[in-house]
């Protein structure tokens, strides 16, 4: 594996302006910190899993990396260039190297285009001068790669099942031969038997094409299966980052521990006898996050210092970092 990272994200911050009901037009909008101070690096052939509850900023992080939402601060260094500093047209050459796959397979495909057109669209956009015969050949090639029969090319998205639509989305992402694919909940809408097919497909393609993946999902079992390292987010903040086996075997942050204990294991002997760490209460509002450590309001280990001081995100072992004053 090549150790030179292809993507480095440093202190990335994304804020949204939110105005609440009843605000006057001149009232200053409140800041919602959707993504706060996130840093990581990714090498070719690696998979970074991103997990967390809904509203923790997983998708915003993905969108900020490809500049679909503007970042407030930080750097996204792609092969040595900071993408955030580039203008729209300067970013364009890099866009074909980073592609995305989305959660709802049907909603992310244009219902009025047949799938041949859908899959070819990125190619036609980024390389408009490609001869038609080459486009067709490339479409057939990627369709075969993702396990779709090429005689289906003239069909429309509604004629396909959810799993097949997700394959179409993957084919569209692959046609530009990207170096990184960001998968935003790619299997959450699929049945388990289909989910396994798509996960295997992604892993095979990664092996074959030396792809880097950012895999966002809320299902920790799937994320652990596919990822080389896992980042746990809570309320827009990184709470833990480690190799995927380490996250499971020695979770150090109380939130990671609770998250792991909440994942049901499909084995009655294990599941009925396990010690469940329940997190009480609800996710605090991201508009008004708790002072100090963001998790302290629901944390069993919280003490005074947690409210006063934000814990530093620091390494505790090789490739294992955590943000907690009282980590294990």
């Amino acid at each position: 594996m090549n150790n030179q990272p292809i993507l480095e994200v440093k202190n990335l911050k994304v804020n949204f302006d939110v105005s609440s009901e009843g605000d006057m037009p001149w009232t200053k909008a409140k800041k919602l910190q959707a993504v706060n101070d996130i840093s990581f690096s990714l090498s070719a052939g690696e998979t970074l899993g991103v997990v967390g509850e809904s509203g923790c900023g997983k998708s915003t992080l993905a969108r900020a990396i490809v500049k679909m939402v503007p970042a407030e601060a930080g750097e996204v260094i792609w092969l040595g260039n900071d993408l955030l500093g580039l203008s729209h047209s300067e970013t364009r050459p890099y866009r074909k190297q980073i592609q995305m796959i989305f959660q709802d397979p049907l909603a992310s495909l244009n219902p009025r285009m047949n799938i041949g057109e859908i899959i070819a669209e990125p190619l036609r956009t980024h390389y408009p001068k490609t001869p038609e015969a080459d486009v067709q050949a490339r479409v057939i090639d990627v369709m075969n790669k993702v396990g779709l029969l090429d005689n289906l090319m003239n069909r429309y998205p509604h004629e396909f099942s959810g799993g097949q639509c997700q394959r179409i989305g993957i084919a569209r992402a692959l046609i530009l031969k990207p170096k990184l694919i960001i998968c935003d909940e790619p299997v959450s809408a699929l049945d388990v038997s289909i989910q396994a097919q798509v996960v295997n497909l992604l892993m095979d393609l990664q092996e074959e094409m030396k792809l880097a993946l950012i895999f966002i999902a809320h299902d920790l079992s799937v994320v652990k299966h596919i990822s080389t390292k896992i980042m746990v987010l809570y309320l827009g903040n990184m709470v833990e980052l480690a190799k995927s086996d380490d996250i499971y075997k020695s979770p150090s942050h109380p939130y990671t521990q609770a998250l792991i204990s909440a994942v049901p294991i499909p084995d009655p002997n294990v599941e009925k006898n396990k010690d469940l760490i329940l997190i009480e209460g609800d996710l605090p509002s991201p508009i008004n996050p708790p002072s100090g450590c963001v998790f302290r309001t629901r944390c069993q280990k919280a003490q005074e210092v947690c409210a006063l001081e934000k814990p530093e995100f620091k390494g505790i072992a090789q490739d294992h970092s955590v943000a907690c004053h009282f980590h294990d």
Binding site: S193, I194, A196, M203, S221, H225, D245, Y248, I260, P266
Partner: peptide, 24 residues
């Protein structure tokens, strides 16, 4: 059997998920 082996387990690491071919 197919259903049970298609789910990845958090407490286990399998090389490859077993899939049920085809569609419902």
């Amino acid at each position: 059997q197919g259903l049970m082996s298609a789910v990845p387990r958090l407490d286990d690491s399998e090389e490859r998920l077993v899939t049920i071919p085809g569609n419902p």
